[in-house]
Nucleic acid binder design. Structure first.
Lengths: 202, 202, 202, 202
DNA sequence: GATGAATGAGAGTTCATTCAT
DNA sequence: CATGAATGAACTCTCATTCAT
């Protein structure tokens, strides 16, 4: 309601909910398989088994569909990270951060191609308060942990850690890796190394 | 060599070379300023001060222009990394790697927006032998150093190091950082941490 | 009577009548505020507080709604002119005609924007016997008065008088005039001038 | 260049000029025959014998085409009125005004249906400085003459005269009149009547 | 009867690419 | 070789209308 990317109608009825989901499902598949260039509203509608008119009943424009996809994906990441943080409550700083990063990785590897494409697509999207908030929340999750240990610029540290993890994941996926465990281990080395210098005695 | 992305004619004559450069210059500026969506062949031609017909005399299609831009950028990175490697010849392993990563960062920060856009654009480009080779060469540069010290999978290690550096750079740029030094220092921490576990005694 | 523009059901029941009125009310408001381009059946239904399905229960298509609006407006004009004619019964020819023209003006100024938009919309409507008859009746009203005084082509004279009045009104409205009196006076000058030449001695 | 309705490229070459003219010609015909609803950019392009892409090389959007048509028509009217004013230089006030109104009528009757449709279309057009100026100039033409004789609000008088003439013309055309002379005579009666009351002794 | 999700023809517009000059 | 007018497939999006519930 408040933003240009907001969906058009809330899925109150069951049929509506299904149609909305079908649209996102179809759009996600298309985006993963064909990239941004292959994601056209007509293709999405056809793949979702609905008419183009119906598609526009649920999303005001193409960007809103991408936004919804992104939001969905982010919500999954956020939830996974929250769960990981809770599970490792009480552990050492770097252990908690690594658990979160692992969780994030696992989420991303569920649909690697889609995650990749979404990351690229985000740059072409207009600023949206909802998406911004989600982005902030993901980072805040890490900031929260870091802030318990040192004062100095936890925002930057959180950004760095998440970014290096994302970079490594993306490259690994492109190189054909599909298993999470080995990649996670390597990521941990970088994360721990990064963090060790920040801690009072490491 | 005779691929879809190869330029149409060798720049033997001086005027040809200049026109080609003007096209790339214009395309790069447009891509950096307006993103992929703003990069149209007609705009490029106008910005380059030539006709659309002439543009197609030098590049067979739009993707070839993006490919050339990418190639140019990669060549710069490669050269910078080679120079850094030579300069730090004889230093410790991690010192050499860090020097290369720093060099890469510096190159990328010369035109941060362009580098970002190119990275995104690459994913939509068809596979091209020329670009693949360059990508390999960059990685090989790091592999060469790593291989002197340990046997185990230097390719993956090189990929990881480059990827985490790229991820951090990209996030930093998006967050508005413009200075190279602080970012380089943070990157070094991650790189050293990652590598330390690989070395016999670190 | 059974034309394409005829409403679908006779408003025998009270609820029906109310719904029909609500539709016209909503359509009129929309047409006045947003013009023909803003008048969509879905908007009308929402503004009328009913579903799009119900709207089509009362009017077979969009043009029928515009037709009804036009008919309603014409009926108002016709009634006003009849009343004016009766009130000025026995007065001089030009006085009677002027009274009618004044009445018409007053009607039109009750919803100037709507009247304007309707006039434009009429041209895009298909021919409809009902509307044609009303148009004729308005003109006949004037013809009736004129015919009492001279034979020569009272139809044309009536048309001319009404048309010049409509033209002046429309231009005045567009120029921002809202008061009826001054405009009515100016209109009278033109009407009297036009008629004077037709009378035996004026 | 300054407005949204401005054409895209100046017709320097001969071929260009022809294409531009063909577009306006086709659009005018379509508008006259089918009304605003029948005027689609694809139809215009087909009727003009060009591709839709070419059409958009000359006009940035559909409204610009309508604007150009309107401008063309207005320019004709303006020229005709100027000529009439010069021809009747030195004559009495009402004679000059009537000459101008006659000229206007003649212009409008050259393509009656088009003139009608254009008048309706103008209401849907966004404000455009160029068109506004032309509109002003037409009125100014009459104001200039009126101002020589009396001070009181020549703008309103000019507007009234032009509006009543336009109203009568439009109604006459719709009624099937095609000859200018009789209509012009009737118009003169109204105009003289209107003006007579404004003159000192008339 | 009322509802509103669904439809799909068709609108306006863009842009990579060609080719006559 | 350079030019730029011309092309047209393809895109995003609208809206009058239908019909299962």
């Amino acid at each position: 309601m408040t933003t240009a990317l907001a969906p058009r109608k809330a899925p109150r009825q069951d049929r509506s909910r299904k149609t909305r989901d079908a649209i996102l499902q179809a759009a996600g598949g298309l985006l993963a398989r064909e990239g941004l260039r292959g994601l056209t509203t007509n293709h999405v509608a056809r793949a979702a088994g609905i008419s183009i008119g119906s598609l526009y009943q649920y999303y005001p424009n193409k960007q809103a569909i991408i936004g919804a996809l992104l939001s969905q994906s982010r919500a999954g990441v956020l939830a996974a990270m929250e769960a990981a943080a809770e599970d490792s409550d009480g552990a050492a700083l770097d252990a908690v951060v690594c658990a979160m990063v692992r969780a994030r990785l696992q989420e991303q590897l569920r649909q690697p191609a889609l995650a990749e494409a979404l990351a690229r697509a985000e740059a072409e999207l207009p600023d949206d308060p909802g998406l911004s908030r989600q982005r902030t929340q993901v980072q805040a999750q890490v900031v929260g942990v870091l802030a318990e240990y040192y004062v100095d610029d936890p925002e930057t540290a959180a950004r760095d850690v998440l970014a290096l993890a994302e970079g490594m994941t993306s490259a690994a996926v492109r190189a054909g890796e599909t298993e999470a465990a080995p990649l996670a281990d390597r990521m941990e080395r970088a994360v721990r190394g990064y963090l060790s210098a920040l801690l009072p005695e490491g």
